[in-house]
């Protein structure tokens, strides 16, 4: 079996899982000021992702760790090449994680309002920047023969990458709204449904534009199906079929990720300086022994992880409503 290819697929799966899962909790966080009218609404929203957001984030940690192990040069060039955007993402994730835990532990409205701002920015910034980063990956970066990225930070904000960022931001907002429609009850649910219905009108053209600009071959097909899934999601949410709508937006997010990795293949970080300098699955991969070891570890433990994470979603499957929220403590 071609182990580097297997690990490229494994890393694509991990990123896809990350976008599908943390995509909705980014959306929920960023929608706080849009869908909540008072503190109880905000707490309904935050508690709907409360038990699961941290586990969702581990998909990112695992994707990055797996990249380090399986494609060290990809890991090194990508993180140093996107230095400032990655820094911003880290600061956002730090603030956001602490904010979820700490916002309820203060006594004043001002304390909570400040942490709410951190949650909103900490969710919206990574939602935009992941799209920007991955669009740049697909497009390629200025990179020399030594695999050192020489692109300036301003070059990262090209039209295609900004489109990618706006797409992930708006798509995650929609995905988060559909999640809230599915997982909450009361006014937040009503507003989330309305928001989801309206926001499709923004997300859809962005997705179509991105897919058209990106697509070639099989990846294009995945992008087209993503568009179809998004339309299906829009129909479902308007008909009040929240479960189907969430499935559809999850599929759309997942297929967007497939489109990105499918277009990237067989490269992992294309060089715009000279295609000969590109990092590819073949030249960035670790040796077969490391990949074999990691394959066994993943084969044994990934199903286990999926099992208990699915169980935790099952445990917290019920809708969260205003009545469930206890008094402030």
């Amino acid at each position: 079996m071609d182990l580097p290819l297997v690990w490229f697929l494994a890393i694509a799966v991990l990123w896809t899982g990350y976008f599908v899962l943390e995509g909705f909790d980014f959306g929920v966080g960023a929608l706080l000021p849009v869908l909540a009218r008072d503190d109880t609404d905000r707490r309904v929203m935050i508690n709907s992702i409360g038990p699961v957001w941290d586990g969702n984030e581990v998909w990112l940690i695992t994707a990055v760790g797996a990249t380090f192990a399986a494609f060290p040069a990809w890991y090194a060039s990508m993180l140093s090449g996107f230095y400032l955007p990655v820094l911003l993402i880290l600061l956002a994730l730090i603030g956001r994680g602490v904010a979820f835990e700490y916002r309820g532990k203060g006594d004043t409205a001002r304390w909570r309002a400040r942490w709410d701002t951190v949650i909103v920015l900490g969710s919206a910034i990574p939602a935009f920047l992941w799209g920007l980063i991955f669009a740049n990956l697909v497009r390629g970066l200025e990179m020399g023969a030594d695999h050192v990225v020489t692109a300036s930070v301003f070059a990262l904000f090209n039209g295609y990458a900004v489109l990618g960022g706006l797409l992930t931001l708006s798509l995650f907002l929609l995905h988060g709204a559909v999640f809230l429609a599915l997982k909450t009850d009361g006014p937040v649910r009503v507003r989330a449904r309305a928001f989801a219905g309206r926001s499709v009108l923004v997300v859809l053209p962005l997705l179509v534009a991105f897919v058209a600009w990106t697509g070639r071959g099989g990846a294009l097909a995945a992008g087209v199906v993503a568009v179809v899934a998004l339309v299906a999601g829009a129909v479902a949410i308007r008909r009040g079929r929240e479960g189907w709508a969430f499935t559809a937006t999850a599929v759309a997010v997942g297929l967007l990720s497939v489109t990105i990795f499918g277009t990237l293949f067989p490269e992992v970080l294309p060089s715009t300086t000279d295609p000969a300098f590109s990092l590819t699955i073949a030249n960035a991969a670790s040796a077969p022994y490391t990949l074999t070891v990691m394959s066994w570890v993943a084969l044994v433990f990934l199903p286990l992880v999926l099992g208990y994470q699915a169980w935790s979603y099952w445990v917290f499957r019920k809708r969260v409503g205003r009545d469930h929220i206890p008094a402030a403590h």
């Binding site: 409360g50 038990p51 699961v52 957001w53 941290d54 586990g55 984030e57 581990v58 940690i61 695992t62 990055v64 760790g65 797996a66 990249t67 380090f68 192990a69 399986a70 494609f71 060290p72 040069a73 890991y75 090194a76 670790s286 040796a287 490391t290 070891v293 990691m294 570890v297 993943a298 433990f301 990934l302 992880v305 208990y308 994470q309 935790s312 445990v315």
Partner: peptide, 26 residues
Amino acid sequence: VGDVFGAPLAMEALLAFFLESTFIGL
């Protein structure tokens, strides 16, 4: 070092961090 050093880091995420963060939420 990635070929050597990355493996324990990836294992840490897969074996330990998922366990820790999922069950702390529960």
